[in-house]
Simulated assay, not measured.
Amino acid sequence: MLAKANHVLLLSLTITFIFTIAFAFEPSPLQDFCIADSTSSALVNGKVCKDPMLTQANDFFFSGLHLPGNTSNFLGSRVTPVNVAQIPGLNTLGISMVRIDYAPWGLNAPHTHPRATEILTVLEGSLQVGFVTSNPENRLISKVLQKGDVFVFPIGLVHFQRNIGHGNAVALAALSSQNPGVISIANAVFGSNPPIASDILTNAFQVDKNVVERLQTIF
């Protein structure tokens, strides 16, 4: 009986260990910090660490999120990122953030973050937000947010935000990666380099070839 109990315990621990590895998108650091060395050409999964003795406060500092982003574009929104590119000290720490500014009826168009879950807080204005679940349901989960409200977009799922007010809106979002990445759906599909063959997109979207080619010139 004791041997059987030990076997069950060992099996449980093994399964827990496997799942822990599977869900560890960014491993825990093995030192206090690993300041990204922007001068290194070495290719690693992340950034090479610079000599810790050269660490300074500015390696962990960014200034500028109090400044409104320029929303004078066709979407009427602007994302100001604060990831490892802006703060080298974020390297290996598995977190970053963005400020998002929206003009009246401005849109942060459908996109995904392939390496991060996002948690968004509305600082000013009203936002309609939503994400779409994976195949085969493709169910839209959507809600209207007011100042102070918080909403989560699960990792990898297509999501969006739209300002539904007549004034400017501002949101702050944290992401569970030092470099979450962004795949803008329209840009990826119609603006790839080289372009996806128009007949493929015509068939996929069930639209006329002229529509596809026009969209490809826009993006």
Score class of each variant (00 low, 15 high):
Asn108Met: 06
Pro27His: 01
Thr39Trp: 00
Asn168Asp: 13
Leu2Val: 14
Ile218Tyr: 08
Arg78Met: 12
Ala57Val: 13
Ala5Val: 08
Ile141Val: 15
Ile119Phe: 00
Leu67Lys: 15
Val152Ala: 14
Gln178Asn: 07
Pro52Tyr: 07
Asn6Lys: 06
Val84Gln: 07
Leu75Gly: 05
Gln178Leu: 10
Asn70Asp: 15
Pro104Ser: 09
Asn91Thr: 12
Met97Asn: 09
Ala204Met: 10
Leu215Val: 08
Leu157Met: 15
Pro29Arg: 11
Phe74Asn: 13
Ile185Lys: 03
Ala42Phe: 02
Cys49His: 01
Ser72Pro: 00
Asn108Lys: 01
Leu30Ser: 15
Leu67Ala: 12
Val122Ser: 10
Trp105His: 14
Ile141Tyr: 03
Gly125Trp: 07
Pro29Asp: 00
Ala116Arg: 02
Thr39Gln: 07
Val158Glu: 05
Val129Ser: 05
Asn203Leu: 09
Asn83Glu: 02
Met1Glu: 10
Pro27Lys: 11
Arg99Lys: 14
Thr80Ser: 07
Phe160Met: 05
Thr55Trp: 01
Arg139Asn: 13
Asp199His: 15
Gln86Trp: 03
Gly46Ala: 07
Ala85Asp: 13
Leu172His: 08
Gly130Met: 02
Phe61Ile: 07
Thr16Arg: 02
Asn168Ile: 05
Ser72Thr: 15
Gln216Trp: 07
Gly165Ala: 12
Pro88Lys: 09
Lys50Ser: 15
Gln56Met: 13
Gln86Cys: 04
Ile155Asn: 11
Asn168Leu: 01
Val182Asn: 06
Leu172Lys: 00
Gln161Met: 14
Leu93Cys: 07
Leu201Tyr: 03
Ala109Tyr: 11
Leu75Val: 11
Asn179Phe: 01
Val79Asn: 02
Glu137Lys: 14
Thr20Val: 03
Gly165Pro: 03
Leu43Lys: 15
Ile183Gln: 13
Gly106Ala: 12
Asn58Arg: 14
Asp59Ile: 01
Gly76Ile: 05
Gln216Leu: 08
Leu75Glu: 11
Gly106Asp: 11
Cys49Met: 10
Val207Ile: 13
Asn210Glu: 09
Pro136Arg: 04
Ser77Lys: 05
Ser28Tyr: 01
Pro68Met: 08
Ala188Asp: 12
Gln216Asn: 01
Pro81Arg: 00
Asn70Ile: 01
Ala24Glu: 14
Ala174Gly: 14
Ser28Val: 06
Lys4Leu: 11
Thr16Pro: 00
Pro114Ile: 04
Lys4Ala: 14
Ala5Ile: 13
Ile218Gln: 13
Met1Ala: 14
Ala197Ser: 01
Thr20Cys: 14
Val170Gly: 02
Ser38Gln: 13
Arg78Leu: 02
Asn58Phe: 01
Phe160Glu: 03
Ile87Arg: 04
Ser176Val: 00
Val132Asn: 09
Phe131Cys: 02
Pro29Trp: 00
Ser12Met: 08
Leu9Lys: 14
Asp101His: 11
Thr121Gln: 11
Thr16Trp: 04
Arg78Pro: 00
Phe23Trp: 05
Ile119Met: 10
Gly167Glu: 15
